[in-house]
Design a protein around this nucleic acid. Structure first.
Length: 870
DNA sequence: CTAGGGTTAG
């Protein structure tokens, strides 16, 4: 490698180039006629007095040898034989006193550019430098063209900066080069520089600038340029005005775009295309579609782009009928034979959920690109047909189509909604092997791992990312929230705020974590954040906020927020109904559901779950059946496990155990433990040991490891005083690992059953023992005698007191001022003993206790619980 | 002017 090539690799970074620009413009510009050599970049060699001007060789007939050589090189250039041309040029250099002329260099550079042969291009450049060829504006432009075409913008810019008297074409070329790779700011800088140097912009300059300004979002500069356009007389140049319209649309100012449009005397098809795509981008697809209809009505000629844009408009309108119309129209015009159109068309069908039509388009295509395959895969992934998506992905690879980053993100989406961690990991390896770890791909990877339940893998991707955007953070936080790791979610949220400003999505990701921890204060903090940021119009977010207040035992605040909301959707209502339900207001829940019905809001699966829950909770058997039938018959919703569970619960509460049993046997899907568990609960309530044993058998088959149901069966035995059975069962039961916590003065105090670490442990124990004795005296509950049938009374009592929720309640009694409600949260279901004891305490001590378990709230007051015994 | 991808509530 020659010294000259070394120079090429030792370039100063971009910002230094800018500084150098500054120098050139104000100090060196007049003397800066030649090109720098291998000397440091800020130093320039003076014009060599011995240098032969390259152009002179053309007019020098004395040297036939040289002319012939040049002609020969140029001949190979014309034939496209770069290697031969290069060989000749390099050998040429070794012959003393011979010169390659400027035209030959131009041809060589042109061919290098066309062949994207950066290495050869650099070689030509070195040749020019070593021969001290004067880089005039023609050669300079060619060099810039070569570097930029070969993707080497840094060197292209370097040459560019040293070309004196650059014409507007070269300026445009360089600005476009930056725009193409997304460096819009740099492009705008060049534009400003060009103006300072007094170079007149042309129409290409303006179209490029409007694109850049729109991308940066610099509306002010755009307005200024709008002024220049008029001043310089480009107001009637359609290419300029079209890009102006596009600029206004991209900045979201539909009004300005329309104003410009209305004043245009001579609209062309591009103008109309701009209008359609502009409307679509601003969420006004219907208006865009109107423009298209007018075009068709007025017999304005439509081009392929129009068709592509209009089909995309149909996709964003969601309804497949307009899409079908356009499809028919396109067939008449023969557009459906163009791959670009077919790709958009199949994407439209897939976005409208009509995968059959999408597949038809796909199969009819005579040529399919990676975009076609990816659109199909993404479509299957969207409608939840993950297996189809994955199969198509494999088929695509078999056909030899190379997946790109779009494809892998789509397939990751499919793995995520399928929960296929193994497949997802395979895709991960593929991504790593092919070095496809772009920002979006990594975000999709994290999402896949989060949805497949592996937060460790998600975090490992996250921590390896050099550049993270808001989506990366939100994905991680949301992943922790959904995977029941609220503390991790909150920690990451804190870390995030040090690096990036959270947005509305962040809030919807973090609020469920607050809700699941019942961390009211944190939730309030976030509510404050939402108010300060003015995010209250985000329905998604406010729904989550209402849910947070519901779960942090502030039903009243939730209701106030709910009442204040001017726009409510099905989720808003469902949150509120579920809220009433878990707080024990079944009747209010049913009322809200009816109100929702009056408002004409369409129910979905989740809203039916909530209302069925409410019915079972309040013992509204008739109503429950009515809603169930409404769901199945009118809404044609297949009942899911949750719905069946509610109905079983409903029947059990009404004492119709055998009916419930029959109902389960008729289910169209396989009942799981929660269904049988509901029936087992019913058996306990109605003391039906015989049925309980049958049901328990089914449960133990399904989940032999789940201790919860052994406990329940044991309770049933002891309540019916079958002590021997209790003993046998209890021997096999491991301690349940529940824990409870109580927030006092912002500090969360955690209690684990049997753990006496709390400094107040002794006091709590004696307090609870005293309460227990009073309870026995009172004869409050005979149920308690079964607590631990094989131990003596004292042991029995302390064992009961060891239950975590009672420890937390005891701690609350000791710490909180009298009269203050005690709020305890438990991670698993509240145990029967503690439930009885809480009732007693609420009456005996005259204290309200609110206990939240994994299912619902238990409001204990004056010896009663809002849950009505379940 | 011109096709496909990632995050969010019950």
């Amino acid at each position: 490698m020659t010294k000259t090539t070394t120079f090429i690799f030792h370039l100063s970074p971009n910002h230094q180039i800018k500084t150098q620009n500054h120098l050139i413009r104000h100090k060196n510009v007049k003397h800066q006629l030649n090109f720098p050599s291998q000397l440091p970049s800020s130093t320039f060699i003076p014009i060599s007095p011995t240098k032969i001007p390259s152009t002179s060789s053309l007019i020098s007939p004395s040297n036939h040898q040289i002319t012939n050589h040049n002609a020969e090189i140029r001949k190979f250039c014309q034939l496209g034989n770069l290697q031969k041309a290069m060989d000749l040029a390099c050998n040429f250099e070794q012959v003393q006193d011979t010169v390659i002329d400027s035209k030959t260099y131009c041809d060589l550079l042109q061919l290098c550019a066309e062949s994207k042969a950066l290495h050869h291009g650099k070689q030509v450049h070195s040749l020019m430098i070593s021969r001290t060829i004067e880089i005039d504006s023609v050669l300079g432009s060619k060099l810039v063209f070569m570097y930029v075409s070969c993707g080497d913008l840094v060197n292209g810019r370097r040459v560019f900066d040293n070309v004196v008297s650059k014409n507007v074409f070269l300026w445009n070329f360089m600005m476009n080069a930056y725009a193409k790779i997304g460096e819009y700011e740099e492009s705008v800088c060049l534009f400003k520089l060009m103006q300072e140097l007094g170079v007149e912009p042309d129409s290409y300059t303006f179209t490029c600038m409007f694109k850049c300004v729109a991308a940066i979002g610099d509306g002010g500069l755009g307005l200024v340029m709008h002024g220049s356009v008029l001043k310089l007389g480009f107001g009637f140049d359609n290419t300029v005005v079209n890009s102006l319209i596009a600029f206004y649309f991209k900045c979201g100012s539909v009004d300005n775009a329309c104003k410009v449009f209305v004043k245009m005397p001579d609209r062309d098809v591009v103008t109309l295309n701009c209008m359609i795509s502009g409307y679509v981008a601003n969420g006004l697809a219907e208006k865009g579609f109107e423009v298209f209809k007018e075009m068709v009505g007025c017999k304005v000629s439509v081009d392929l782009s129009t068709m592509v844009i209009v089909v995309a408009a149909c996709a964003s309108m969601g309804g497949v009928s307009s899409g079908r119309m356009v499809h028919a129209y396109a067939v008449k015009g023969g557009f459906d034979e163009k791959m670009k159109f077919s790709n958009t068309l199949l994407d439209m069908y897939s976005k409208c959920g009509d995968m059959d039509s999408a597949l038809k388009v796909f199969k009819n295509m005579n040529e399919r690109s990676v975009v076609s395959w990816t659109s199909m895969i993404a479509g299957y992934a969207r409608v939840g047909k993950s297996d189809d998506a994955i199969n198509l992905f494999l088929e695509m690879k078999k056909e030899g189509v190379k997946p790109d980053t779009f494809t892998v993100t789509s397939i990751l989406h499919a793995c995520a909604s399928n929960g296929s961690l193994e497949k997802g990991k395979e895709v991960h390896s593929y991504i790593t092997e092919n070095k496809m770890q772009s920002l979006v791909v990594c975000n999709a990877l994290m999402d896949m791992y989060a949805k497949c339940g592996s937060m460790e893998d998600a975090y490992s991707v996250f921590s390896d990312m050099v550049f993270k955007d808001i989506v990366s953070w939100n994905t991680m936080i949301g992943g922790y929230s959904k995977n029941s790791l609220p503390n991790e979610a909150l920690d990451l949220f804190t870390k995030m705020q040090r690096e990036i400003t959270p947005d509305n999505v962040t809030m919807t990701c973090i609020l469920p974590a607050c809700a699941s921890l019942a961390a009211l204060n944190k939730g309030r903090e976030i509510h404050g954040h939402i108010l300060r940021k003015g995010l209250t119009s985000d329905l998604y977010l406010v729904n989550t906020l209402v849910d947070m207040y519901v779960k942090c035992d502030r039903l009243f605040i939730a209701k106030s927020l709910f009442d204040l909301m001017t726009v409510k959707d099905v989720v808003t209502w469902t949150v509120m109904i579920a809220g009433y339900c878990i707080h024990g207001f079944g009747h209010e829940a049913v009322l809200a559901f009816k109100k929702m019905q009056e408002k004409g809001i369409k129910f979905n699966e989740a809203s039916f779950t909530s209302v069925l829950h409410a019915c079972s909770h309040s013992g509204l058997v008739q109503e429950g059946w009515k809603f169930y039938n409404l769901m199945v018959n009118d809404y044609k919703i297949e009942p899911k496990l949750e719905h069946y569970g509610c109905m079983v619960d409903l029947l059990c509460r009404g004492g119709k155990l055998s009916e419930a049993y029959k109902f389960i046997k008729k289910m169209t899907i396989k009942p799981d433990v929660t269904i049988w568990g509901a029936l087992l609960c019913g058996c306990r309530f109605h003391h039906d040991v015989k049925l309980a044993e049958i049901v328990a058998e089914k449960i133990f088959e399904l989940e032999p490891e789940n201790m919860e149901y052994y406990m329940l069966l044991a309770d049933i035995y002891s309540e019916t005083e079958k002590w021997e059975e209790v003993k046998t069962l209890r021997n096999g039961i491991r301690n349940n690992t529940g824990c409870s916590w109580i927030e006092i003065k912002g500090k969360v105090n955690i209690f684990v059953a049997g753990n006496k670490d709390n400094p107040e442990a002794k006091k709590i124990e004696s307090l609870l023992e005293n309460l227990r004795m009073e309870m026995n005296k009172d004869g409050f509950s005979r149920k308690l005698k079964y607590a631990l049938a094989d131990k003596n009374d004292m042991e029995k009592e302390s064992a009961v007191c060891g239950h975590s929720e009672m420890l937390a309640v005891g701690f609350g009694l000791l710490t909180l001022p009298p009269g203050r409600t005690i709020r305890v949260t438990k991670n698993v279901k509240v145990c029967g003993d503690c439930h009885e004891m809480a009732k007693f305490i609420s009456k005996n001590v005259g204290r309200q206790i609110v206990l939240r378990d994994c299912n619902r709230f238990h409001h204990f007051k004056d010896g009663f619980c809002s849950c009505r015994g379940c």
